[in-house]
Simulated assay, not measured.
Amino acid sequence: MNIFVGSLPYNVEEADLREYFEEYGEVTSAKLITDKFTGRSKGFGFIEMPDDEAAQKAIDELNGAKIDGRSIVVNKSEPKPQGERKPFNRNGGGNRGGFSNSRDNNRGRY
């Protein structure tokens, strides 16, 4: 079972995360999600456990547990439906800015 773990303190490392879940059974992988530019933890990660019963027990007992004073969120990870992802817009359209030659939009600045 793939498990989402959120609201983690930023000082938690993958080895720590693995250790928390190994108390409930075998952990095949532990992955913290990090910022690709800074390498700093984003405060969430994923655990993979082959035994669904052990994984569910870990979810039930660790959800809401405190680590360094923070209550963590633990639940079964569900994959995102492919159809709901928005395409990447390279032109910066919409309300997010983008380039415009219009004098009115740029208030007289070029």
Rank of each mutant, 00 (worst) to 15 (best):
F4K: 08
V5P: 09
V5A: 01
S7V: 11
S7K: 14
S7E: 13
L8A: 05
L8Y: 07
P9H: 09
Y10T: 08
Y10W: 11
V12C: 04
V12T: 14
V12H: 06
E14H: 00
E14Q: 11
E14F: 01
L17A: 00
L17T: 03
R18N: 10
E19A: 06
F21I: 10
E22A: 03
E26Q: 15
E26R: 13
V27C: 14
T28S: 15
T28I: 15
S29M: 11
A30G: 05
A30W: 07
A30I: 04
I33S: 00
I33D: 06
T34K: 15
D35E: 07
K36R: 09
K36N: 02
F37I: 13
T38D: 02
G39L: 10
R40T: 02
R40Y: 06
K42E: 06
K42Y: 03
G45M: 03
F46I: 06
I47Q: 02
I47G: 01
I47E: 04
E48T: 07
E48H: 04
M49H: 04
P50Y: 05
D51P: 00
D52A: 12
A55P: 07
K57L: 12
K57G: 00
A58N: 06
I59K: 05
I59M: 05
I59D: 01
D60W: 00
E61F: 00
N63Q: 09
A65W: 01
A65F: 08
K66H: 03
I67W: 04
I67L: 10
D68I: 00
G69L: 07
G69T: 03
R70I: 01
R70V: 00
R70S: 05
I72L: 04
V73Y: 12
V74W: 04
K76I: 14
K76W: 06
S77R: 12
E78L: 14
E78R: 12
E78F: 10
P79G: 09
K80H: 11
P81V: 11
P81E: 15
P81R: 15
Q82M: 11
E84T: 15
E84F: 08
R85N: 07
R85Q: 14
K86M: 05
K86R: 13
R90I: 13
G92Y: 05
G93Y: 06
G93H: 09
G93I: 06
N95M: 12
N95S: 13
R96T: 06
R96W: 00
R96G: 13
G97K: 00
G97C: 07
G97F: 07
G98N: 02
G98C: 09
F99T: 03
N101G: 10
N101Y: 12
N101H: 11
S102K: 13
D104T: 13
N106V: 09
N106M: 09
N106E: 08
R109Y: 13
R109S: 08
Y110W: 08
